[in-house]
Design a protein around this nucleic acid. Sequence first.
DNA 1: CAAGGTATTGACAACGTTATCATTGCCAGC
DNA 2: GCTGGCAATGATAACGTTGTCAATACCTTG
Lengths: 349, 349
Amino acid sequence: MTDIQVHDALWTPPTIRDVAARAGASLKTVSRVVNGEPGVSPDMERRVRDAIATLDYRPNMTASNLRRVGGRTRSIGLLLSNVGNPLDNGVQRAIEQAAHDRGFVVIGSTIGEDARREREIVDIFTARRVDGLVIMAAGHDQSYLAEQRRMRISMVFIDRPPAMFESDTVVVDNEEGSARGVAHLVSHGHRRIGFLGGVSSVVTTEQRLAGYFGALRAADIEIDRSLIAVGIQGSEAAHEAAIQMMSGSNPPTALFAGQNLITIGAVRALRQLDLHRRIALVCFDDVQLFDLLDPGLTVLAQDPWAIGRKAAETLFSRLDGSNEGHRTDVIPVELIERGSGEIPGPFAG
Amino acid sequence: MTDIQVHDALWTPPTIRDVAARAGASLKTVSRVVNGEPGVSPDMERRVRDAIATLDYRPNMTASNLRRVGGRTRSIGLLLSNVGNPLDNGVQRAIEQAAHDRGFVVIGSTIGEDARREREIVDIFTARRVDGLVIMAAGHDQSYLAEQRRMRISMVFIDRPPAMFESDTVVVDNEEGSARGVAHLVSHGHRRIGFLGGVSSVVTTEQRLAGYFGALRAADIEIDRSLIAVGIQGSEAAHEAAIQMMSGSNPPTALFAGQNLITIGAVRALRQLDLHRRIALVCFDDVQLFDLLDPGLTVLAQDPWAIGRKAAETLFSRLDGSNEGHRTDVIPVELIERGSGEIPGPFAG
DNA sequence: CAAGGTATTGACAACGTTATCATTGCCAGC
DNA sequence: GCTGGCAATGATAACGTTGTCAATACCTTG
């Protein structure tokens, strides 16, 4: 037993060479068996498989990847803003699933809204020679990715289109969705509608704000800057912003929350002021439990799973060699009425 | 321009060889510069760095990993039950963070409660020669990991200890926590307390049930099998189970939900029966928004971030060569009162 | 029986890097 | 001027696999 101990200290995993020796075959033949390539007699295949089993041989993908044409690693890099966010989370699961089905592996990283970090992670993943990247961009200039394109790394952008750079993209229609949500409030008799938006450097915030403007214009409602708060980061900041807006001299009768964390802050604020049954609320993003709140939250639901699946599909079609022009897929946003958005306003019919 | 196009079709990324040629240095010297090894004159270093910059050279980690002693890849594999679960999610973020700080990369995968999938993913990660594994085990026999141990892959188990195998582990005290929660209900005057538990093949379910039994015994309450439902999978099943239990001939006056998804089902059920203000509820796991429900949910909160951080710390200490015996860390569980657990029962003082 | 084909197998180089060890140049000390 | 020592540099062989192409064995066909 001590003997084995000593042995183990020096032990290294068996290589294809060990298998070949034991099976009385050449390296290449073993390689063929391992990779399911044709041209191996049944008898030989059996011997090789026996050797593999008794030695408990495991192919070393590091070596394999190095040698393979183009150095393909069958891995993809996933850059998300915040894995804790249900949206990112759903996307991640969909991508992971699709990758697994194709024998790919996903290396992931959270980059927040930090453009520097985005580049850092892209560099790290590039050094590891991922075959593809799925990117929820933080920065406003993705031209640096020209280098990755040269290296034949495929890319798909999600949630936000790239800037200064063309690539496949999967987004939702933020402007239209947001406009629909605001129009919904208008149709329930609201004309003073507050907008709580996220960091304005993020494109989606701008688009949702544009939708808000559009809906107001369509309803001939004048814009009141005191009802617009953007640059909100996280639910605590949203809480404060909502309190402040509701405490103004001429507060809104309805709120539009531009993102899930902001929604949570807004709900807290309305609760605290005991206004949650009187002030209408429509939110972008759906989250587990939003339906169990009182009142249930009326939301514009994105489908993270659909976004992820579409992104994976696009990426893999590129990896399979598709060469058509860059495509942009728009995943629909669904308005789900649950009560908070149907609280009537002063102009209700 | 067309010229460049044509060029690009054949273009391959520059290698260390190209850098060496341009800098008038040997391969090894470039390698030294890239890896920050000593023994390079300032002048030479400058030339090499210039060459790297003009060629936009990026080290190929695949090749590097292959050659390095022990074939270390500076990557760790993360096996989680369900990335969509807030617990798993928090763990993931903590691990990712720690890994990034150390220059490691995380490849992740969801395995559900499927033992076969657990092994499959471990095999895949092993083939990629990860340096370490963080495992939320699905199966009940981890003895197969002896092979990975021989290969010097470090391992840390989270949430559930390994079976038939010894290894570092980070868990929470499920039994004690659960007992505390049930005792809390008892102290508020409840003696008929229903238990809704997850899949019984998962150790944590058993431990939480044991805590439930312990608390009842300590309070001299006889066990009523009709108040125990285990094997519940997902929130819909939990919803049904709760409805059924509350519709019995002698229903409980309080419920203990053994896990976050079950909690959600239970809350739905109590709402539907309009009992949410009369039946007390204590739940294992805290989730965003539980505090915003009405009444707020009294929970036994795990700290996923702490679990992940501790797991990463342990794993990296092993990778740094620590050789001490297997350790088991227990992260405390916190009881947070928010209302649902303080609804008085018939025996309230 | 020769010619040609097909199926099986293997030898060898190569992938891009790092480990090992040798070589070179330079300076201090005697 | 010679020796020893140190710092800088490089030549070469790996790492474990797959791509290329050659070699062999065995048929089939005329």
